[in-house]
């Protein structure tokens, strides 16, 4: 198939970017979207032009590195997959495909289609863990966890930190991402001792990074490649409120 690509090119965060048009010819429908970009890039390199930069690594939908905004949707037109799992059979011959980076103030462009998502790491630093050192922990089966709770915690824990939720949100809110981590640990007995401290610390860091507020439109859930649910946000809000009302003396100690 032959396609026309309209790609966002930007040298770095300090320079202005623009859309540039490239042809992508002789593309097989069995190629992945990123393999299609590889082919275009090989052509650009041989012509002596600067190849299109995009972040990617595992190419099997789990590392969360790839982050393309394709035809107006994070990770493209299909549900519950990442850009690297998208195949060209989802497009038609002659189609024009627009490719942009995630757009959010908290995710400055690094180059072309890659953004700096270190804000997410800093939110994790603020409290996305159970404070246990290596060694000196109880036997694994001394902590029984009901299967439905363990399964629910697992569902939240499958977030790949790609940032599609932020990119999909009109407010560039990071609530789905933050709430997934909060939920995983709030559901599990291991997460209880630091539960209310954690939610406050992570939300405070989220605000500091400049993400927008949540207005419950649900675009994040619709576009999440791992189908993380809005109920996580409800759980975050519940815990946050509880922390503010009932535990403040402990939290501000």
């Amino acid at each position: 198939m032959n396609l026309t690509l309209k790609v966002w090119r930007q040298k770095n965060a300090k320079t202005a970017g623009k859309m540039v048009t490239y042809p992508a010819n002789d593309i097989s429908p069995d190629m992945s979207f990123l393999e299609m970009l590889d082919v275009v890039n090989e052509g650009l390199i041989l012509k002596g032009e600067d190849p299109i930069y995009f972040d990617h690594d595992c190419r099997e939908g789990i590392c969360g590195t790839c982050s393309l905004y394709i035809n107006g949707r994070p990770h493209g037109p299909k549900q519950a997959i990442t850009s690297c799992q998208l195949h060209m059979r989802s497009f038609y011959d002659g189609q024009t495909i627009t490719i942009e980076p995630w757009r959010a103030a908290a995710f400055p462009v690094v180059k072309d289609l890659a953004t700096d998502r270190s804000a997410f790491d800093r939110i994790q630093h603020a409290g996305g863990y159970v404070s246990v050192n290596t060694g000196g922990v109880p036997d694994a089966n001394e902590i029984p966890i009901p299967k439905p709770i363990a399964d629910e915690a697992f569902n939240s824990a499958t977030c790949i930190q790609c940032g599609a939720c932020v990119a999909a949100c009109k407010n560039a809110s990071a609530m789905l991402f933050v709430s997934a981590k909060i939920s995983q640990l709030a559901l599990l007995p291991q997460g209880q001792p630091e539960r209310y401290q954690r939610v406050q610390n992570m939300v405070a860091q989220m605000d500091e990074e400049g993400f927008g507020n949540c207005t419950n439109t649900g675009a994040c859930e619709a576009e999440c490649p791992k189908s993380i649910k809005l109920t996580n946000i409800a759980r975050l809000n519940g815990d946050f409120l509880t922390a503010k009302i009932f535990k403040s003396e402990e939290i501000h100690a």
């Binding site: 863990y129 922990v137 694994a140 029984p144 299967k147 824990a157």
Partner: peptide, 20 residues
């Protein structure tokens, strides 16, 4: 290792009785 990971909150698969 298994003890350590469970203590960190790694959600391993469980049986209905709550054990791993």
């Amino acid at each position: 290792i298994i003890d350590q990971c469970v203590a960190q909150g790694v959600p391993f698969a469980r049986e209905y009785g709550g054990l791993l």
